[in-house]
């Protein structure tokens, strides 16, 4: 249970500080926030505000300088986050980070090594995901031969390979044209409905953020109140 008596948040970030360059750069400055299970949360703010750093810490790609991050009751400061990254979350990056020498199908399969399933099951799951993101006919195509939107959809498929309860996306539409952005947002909506997962999306795009259940604003490494212009007129 949470402090207010509601259901415990699936992600709880408490007073997190992240320093770089021997403390010269304060990327996060006492960030506290949470996300409820099944929620679509957008974190937005200007470039350099620390939103991507926050996502990376929640993804256990790095460790906070201080503070705690608890995901599904697990404190990420504890050693050994490989299993958490493999099955606890799915990660989508702005630049896709696909492996260029592997086919679309293999890019999904590499995320499933060590998940305890047979090669046959892994392949079936990869095909199922490719079909779900509309790339069923391109399983043997390598990423350099896919369009930007297709690459991002492939990256989303890879992130879902191990059926994670949380999907973390860092500027997933940042390098896409408007048609591809709409297609990716539609895909996120379908996935949420189908898989019932929690989606935490970092974006500087107000249109993309507006599709979320809730928006968290950041500036200079801190959570801030919504800028006046972003508050819906009815709520002013």
């Amino acid at each position: 249970m949470s402090d207010d008596g509601g259901p415990a948040p699936i992600i709880q970030v408490t007073d997190v500080v992240k320093l770089y360059d021997d403390g010269l750069v304060r990327a996060l400055d006492g960030v506290t926030m949470s996300a409820a299970r099944g929620e679509f949360l957008a974190v937005t703010g200007p470039s350099g505000c620390g939103k991507s750093t926050l996502l990376q810490l929640i993804a256990a790609l790095d460790r906070p300088t201080s503070g705690s991050i608890v995901v599904e009751g697990r404190d990420l400061r504890e050693a050994g986050n490989d299993t958490y990254r493999r099955t606890g979350i799915g990660l989508v990056f702005q630049l896709h980070n696909l492996l260029p020498n592997l086919t679309a199908l293999q890019n999904i399969e590499v995320a499933m090594f060590s998940n305890g399933r047979s090669h046959g099951e892994q392949r079936a799951r990869a095909r199922e995901l490719l079909a779900a993101v509309g790339l069923g006919a391109k399983e043997k195509v390598t990423p350099p031969r896919l369009s930007g939107g297709e690459r991002q959809r492939l990256a989303i498929a890879r992130a879902l390979a191990n059926r994670p309860p949380i999907l973390l996306a860092d500027e997933p539409t940042g390098s896409l044209d408007s048609a591809a952005v709409d297609r990716v947002l539609e895909l996120f909506r379908e996935i949420r409905e189908r898989e019932g997962l929690t989606l935490l999306l970092v974006t500087h795009d107000a249109h993309v953020a507006s599709t979320a259940d809730r928006i968290v604003y950041m500036r200079d490494g801190k959570i801030v109140a919504a800028p006046e212009a972003d508050v819906p007129a009815a709520a002013r």
């Binding site: 993804a59 790609l61 490989d82 299993t83 958490y84 990254r85 493999r86 099955t87 990660l91 980070n97 696909l98 492996l99 590499v110 995320a111 090594f113 060590s114 890879r158 390979a161 191990n162």
Partner: peptide, 9 residues
């Protein structure tokens, strides 16, 4: 980095 990010040990 990608492989570690997707959970490779």
């Amino acid at each position: 980095g990608v492989l570690r990010a997707v959970g490779w040990t």
